[in-house]
Amino acid sequence: MKMIREFCAENNTYLEKAIKAGVDRIELCDNLAVGGTTPSYGIIDQAAKLCQSTGVELSVMIRPRGGDFCYSEQELAAMRVDIAQANKLGATGIVFGCLTSAHQLDVRACQYLIDGISNMDLTFHMAFDQINPSEKYQALDQLIELGFDRILLHGNQSEKTVIENADEINHYIDYVADKLEIMVGGGITATNLQEVAKVVRTNTFHGTKIVSF
């Protein structure tokens, strides 16, 4: 099975170098210092043109601010506008995550954001790691029902490496079978990628240093 490497790009910095290094997909965002927020429309436009010309997929982060993943009605409305613009500008996917104040998946907010979308990949980002551990399998079922293509996660214990969280992650992979792609990230680099791939049963990996250039 082909290994998929997703490069997390802050604006257009290193975008061309990552593509030349052979990445399969770009996650485009701004403000990595706070975990990533929505990039400007101009940045999306230029990244989309570059990705289209090179055959690389482009997923755009939809997140109006740093902090938690509980969004107001105004924030959700703004996120819908951003999704529509990313679609119009040529992005092939979007990346977002919505939670309730009780650390559950916010199904209503997710449904609101994806209503009417049929031509873009849907990725639920690392907000998944903040869902109550006892409710994660229910959340996986809900994400499948909503039509998400993949989730990005690191594991419940953020202080541990992906390898140390491998048993937990592999349980999720087995649970969803082929209904939902599990992408792992957080500390994965070109240097340790092969080691991670030996213990985590997925072929999809994410990071800011996923390739060397």
Results as ranks from 00 to 15, higher is better:
Tyr71Glu: 03
Met126Pro: 07
Ile144Trp: 05
Ala127Leu: 11
Arg80His: 06
Asn132Lys: 14
Cys29Ile: 07
Ser72Gln: 05
Asp30Gln: 14
Tyr71Met: 08
Gly66Val: 07
Ser59His: 11
Ala86Met: 10
Gln142Trp: 03
Pro133Glu: 13
Gln142Thr: 10
Leu58Pro: 14
Pro39Leu: 12
Gly66Arg: 06
Arg108Asp: 09
Gln111His: 12
Gly35Cys: 10
Glu27Arg: 00
Asp82Gly: 01
Ile83Met: 10
Pro39Trp: 06
Val56Arg: 01
Met126Trp: 04
Ile144Lys: 10
Cys29His: 00
Arg80Met: 08
Asp68Asn: 15
Thr38Asp: 03
Gly35Met: 12
Ser118Gly: 14
Arg108Pro: 00
Ser53Tyr: 00
Gln142Asp: 15
Leu140Gly: 03
Cys29Thr: 02
Gly90His: 05
Gly116Lys: 06
Ala139Val: 12
Cys98Phe: 05
Gln46Met: 13
Thr38Pro: 09
Tyr137Asn: 10
Phe69Leu: 12
Asp45Glu: 15
Cys29Gln: 01
Asp45Cys: 13
Leu76Gln: 06
Ile144Cys: 10
Pro133Asp: 13
Ile94Gly: 02
Gln104His: 15
His103Ala: 12
Ala33Phe: 09
Ala109Pro: 05
Asp82Leu: 01
Cys70Met: 02
Met79Thr: 07
Thr54Ala: 08
Gln130Pro: 01
Glu27Pro: 01
Leu58Ala: 09
Ala78Gln: 13
Tyr41Lys: 10
Ser72Asn: 03
Ser40Asn: 08
Met126Lys: 15
Glu73Ser: 07
Cys29Val: 08
His103Ser: 14
Gly42Phe: 07
Pro64Gly: 13
Ile94Asn: 02
His125Gln: 02
Gln46Ile: 13
Ala77Leu: 03
Asp106Ile: 03
Gly67Asn: 09
Leu99Trp: 08
Met120Arg: 06
His125Gly: 04
Leu113Asp: 05
